[in-house]
Simulated assay, not measured.
Amino acid sequence: MTADEAEPGTVRPGGRTARVRAAVLRAAGDVLAERGFAHMDLADIAQRAGVGKTTVYRRWGTVTALMTDLLTEMVESSLPRTHTGSLLDDLTAHARLVYTTLTDPRQGPLFKAVIAAATYDERTAAALRRFYDARITEWAPCVREAAARGEVPEDTDPREVIRAVSAPLYYRLLASGDPIDEATADRAAKAAIAAARAGIFSPESD
């Protein structure tokens, strides 16, 4: 597939066009956090970004394509996982990264809006799944390394452990409305490790 044939918003620009992409994605994230998916408009985003409307329409074409690129950029800019040599320390770092993101004045509302949009827009849902798959893939090796050290059973499912760490934090963000703090993040990491050590995330426990 050539650049001309690619789906709008999926071609990674370089050079000076990277600055345009960064400005547009920043503006899109601001609108999404402030007003939600339903109020996103490419012309408004172009104006906020200080770029020509035709440039935005030509590069992305639709709000959904822009959303897809925004999620891609969020993966690209995410902090890499830690390598502490301790599963507790690794998962605590992961939990605190999720906590920091979800409580950020901009990122928290942005994630809420993206998740809400994913409930009725399939392309946004697919982009969101790719985002979380990338994050889980980034952190899963710390569980495999812990299994090799004997900290958890060898057949522990790494991806399930990582999901178990972040799930309680997202529940508070999206459902209960209870506050999210470092203590909550640390408790989520400890609970995931306790479950892993008990074999909850091993195949035979299904």
Rank of each mutant, 00 (worst) to 15 (best):
T92L: 11
T100R: 13
P109H: 05
E122F: 14
P105G: 06
K190G: 08
G199D: 07
L71G: 13
V75H: 01
A148G: 06
E138A: 13
E122V: 08
T62Y: 07
E154D: 12
T137N: 04
G199I: 04
I193N: 06
D121T: 02
V114G: 10
R172W: 14
A188F: 07
A3L: 01
T124Q: 00
P168W: 11
T124E: 00
G14F: 12
F131E: 11
R21A: 15
R59W: 08
D69R: 15
Y170A: 07
E145N: 04
L174Y: 05
G150C: 09
A93E: 10
A23S: 11
P109E: 04
A194F: 01
F111T: 15
V24S: 11
S202W: 06
P105V: 05
V51R: 00
E182R: 11
V20P: 02
A49S: 04
Y99K: 15
S202R: 13
P141T: 12
G61K: 00
A125T: 08
A33V: 08
Q107W: 15
S202H: 09
S205T: 06
K112W: 05
P13N: 11
D186M: 03
L91W: 09
R135H: 13
A183P: 01
G14C: 10
A33W: 00
S202D: 14
T137Q: 15
R163C: 07
A185N: 07
R144S: 15
A189C: 05
R26E: 13
E122H: 15
A23F: 03
L32Y: 10
D4F: 06
D133N: 01
L128M: 09
D41L: 10
D44E: 12
A175N: 09
E73G: 10
L32P: 05
P179W: 02
S166R: 09
M74N: 13
